[in-house]
Computed example of a mutant assay.
Amino acid sequence: MINTTSKRKIEHLKLCAESHVEARNVSAGFEDVTLIHRALPELNMDELDLSVEFLGKRLQAPFLIASITGGHPDTVPVNAALAAAAEELGVGIGVGSQRAAIDDPVQEASFRVVRDEAPHAFVYGNVGAAQIREYGVEGVEKLIEMIDADAIAIHLNFLQEAIQPEGDRDASGCLDMIAEICPLLDVPVIVKETGAGISREDALLLQKAGVSAIDVGGAGGTSWAGVEVYRAREREDSLSEHLGELFWDFGIPTVASIIESRVSLPTIATGGVRTGLDIAKSIALGASAASSALPFVGPALEGKTAVAGVLSRMLAEFRAAMFLCGCGSIRDLHNAPVVITGWTLEYLTQRGFNVKDYAVPQDIV
């Protein structure tokens, strides 16, 4: 018999594949970011070095297939397709929340398949902040061991939890638990938002807590409040549907959150990353890597070849963006100037950030 958590996982996957679940009236902000074109790039586009060191692992490009699924028998081929593509193209990959495998060990296979198909890739595990209290260090270590993870992501999804009738709304003590668990684990800890972004205030708290990286998970991509609207309609839950509609676009957009989260930690830009140009803009703004989930959901249901096709296209776009900015390496792209305009400029100015510095090449600042 499929448990409640497992049932919810397959519901989420199907909704993301079949329904409009992206932000409706807010954007991730990439249209407000302009990379400075170099008419004389003085580079051979085919010889650019896209590789990067991320949390102790070498990636062929600064990109991760973000946490998507796992925890239901039907997700085994999905995760297999995602992992095989990640292995082939040398990028990282995360698994969906492993809670279902704790609730029902039979579901472990849906997560283990990722490491089986991607033996050399950077693979990270995934657990909710609300579950750390329940599982403790030993439980989290089991999740890491389950997939031989190179890192563990602790996800913050309290917007979704606030809307789900079965959601865990007790967020008290999460920061202390994160600070307690970080030094006890043998792998890096990534703290990731799931669509509402990370503020400068929280980035500083996470840095102090000892996390190894921050995944901003900003608004502008998949809305998990929106996903919950569809679930609420199916069970005729008018209150949850109302909350999901109201908070569909709630949060800090991704571009703004990248800058909010620029502390002395590696950051991952997630939320509305749809093209290689978005990846390039993320890196130029200071992210260590970018990641995306929704563009791979449909292809993953088709198989590895479809996933690899989408991923290859994004990496080709990324290479072209680097070339046109005159950047031969990821280090060069980190130092490339960008201009920020529009709503994002207004937001960041009101938040006290001096974005003019981004428009000047970082090696002469």
Rank of each mutant, 00 (worst) to 15 (best):
I10A: 00
I330G: 04
Q60H: 15
L345R: 15
A121D: 10
W343F: 14
G218F: 08
I181R: 07
Y135I: 06
V360H: 08
P77R: 14
D104R: 14
A256Y: 03
E145S: 07
C182M: 10
N3G: 06
W343L: 14
I258W: 12
A219C: 12
D170K: 01
L89K: 01
G29F: 09
H72T: 12
A162L: 15
D278Q: 01
P165R: 10
L205M: 15
D202A: 15
L345G: 05
S257N: 12
L143E: 05
S199K: 05
L265F: 11
V365Q: 15
V191K: 07
S312G: 15
S261N: 10
D74K: 07
L311E: 08
E88H: 12
E22S: 14
F30L: 09
I144R: 00
R313S: 12
I190S: 04
A129Y: 03
I154H: 01
A321W: 04
L35W: 06
V137L: 15
Q160E: 14
D357V: 14
I102G: 04
S212W: 10
V106F: 15
A289S: 05
V91S: 06
G342P: 04
A209Q: 06
F30E: 02
C325V: 08
Q107L: 09
H242Y: 15
L277W: 02
V355N: 13
A280E: 07
W224P: 13
W248L: 01
R169P: 07
F63H: 05
N126F: 02
D150S: 09
P62N: 08
G173R: 08
D332F: 04
V211W: 04
I152K: 02
V21S: 09
V297P: 02
V211Y: 04
